Simulated assay, not measured.
Amino acid sequence: MTKQLVAYITGTGNTRQVAEHLAAAIGADLQEIVPNPPFTGADLDWTNPNSRSSRQHANRSMRPAIATNPSINGYDKIFVGYPLWWDTAPREVRTWLESHDFAGKTITTFATSSSSTRGALGTQLHDSAPNAHWVDGRRFDVHANEAELKAWADSIA
């Protein structure tokens, strides 16, 4: 039997909500990647060039600290959820991915955004876990329900 993990990072709580629904729908374990320090509203201010999201966008090599490092031991399939920041994942996701060896594991991403779909496939993250088997991800809005998420997860089995 395949053991599954839903690991996610959230800024406003939207990704957490989708991650919780996905984990419940597919019977997966759920773990949060917590940034250190935690995100604030000011971090998400796209109009401020000094906000955390803007600084991460400007510095692609940035690998910010994380307060939690969800273990991948024993998992075969890993769903990685994140909010889309400038059409990509917050850099903390790369910090987490690069701290593990994903050899023999399947990773697929899901991203939350109310509008953008760019970056949801997760292809920009592949170099952070080059030994993984990557499956293209998908964008969901906060209203995604368990049935929709289960159908998606089953379609990529």
Rank of each mutant, 00 (worst) to 15 (best):
P130Q: 08
K150P: 13
H143G: 08
A7S: 05
A120M: 01
P70V: 00
L44V: 00
T112H: 10
N14K: 06
R60W: 08
S99E: 12
N131R: 14
L121Q: 08
H57N: 13
D127M: 02
S71H: 07
D76I: 11
A65T: 09
T47V: 08
W86Q: 05
E98F: 14
A42Q: 15
T68M: 08
A157T: 15
A153V: 10
D45V: 13
H133I: 00
V93Q: 00
N14Y: 01
D76A: 04
W96T: 10
K105Q: 12
W152G: 11
A58S: 10
D29S: 10
E92D: 09
L22E: 04
S114E: 07
S51H: 06
Y8Q: 04
R52M: 06
N69T: 03
E32I: 09
V18I: 12
K77Q: 15
V18G: 02
H21Q: 11
L30D: 12
H143C: 02
S128F: 08
A157V: 13
H57Y: 05
D136Y: 00
S116E: 07
E92R: 03
Q17R: 15
I9R: 02
A157F: 01
D127T: 09
D136V: 05
Y82D: 10
N50E: 15
G81V: 14
W86R: 02
H133Y: 06
T68A: 11
F39N: 02
L84R: 03
V135G: 04
A103C: 01
M1P: 06
E20P: 01
A132V: 01
S114I: 00
T117W: 03
E146D: 12
M1C: 12
Q56F: 07
G81L: 10
R118F: 11
Q31Y: 00
A89I: 03
R63S: 11
S155P: 04
F102T: 08
R55V: 01
L30K: 13
R63M: 13
T88N: 06
S61N: 13
K105V: 08
S99D: 11
F39G: 03
A153T: 13
Q124L: 09
G81P: 14
E92P: 01
W134C: 14
V80H: 13
D141I: 02
F102S: 05
D127G: 02
V80T: 07
L121M: 05
P37W: 02
P130L: 12
N48V: 00
N145R: 06
W46T: 01
L30M: 07
I9Y: 00
T123F: 12
P37K: 08
A25V: 15
A144Q: 03
I66N: 14
R139V: 00
E98A: 10
H100E: 07
K150C: 04
A144Y: 02
A111F: 05
D43C: 05
M1G: 11
N36V: 02
T109N: 15
T10F: 09
N131S: 09
S128G: 06
I9C: 04
L97W: 04
T2G: 07
H57R: 08
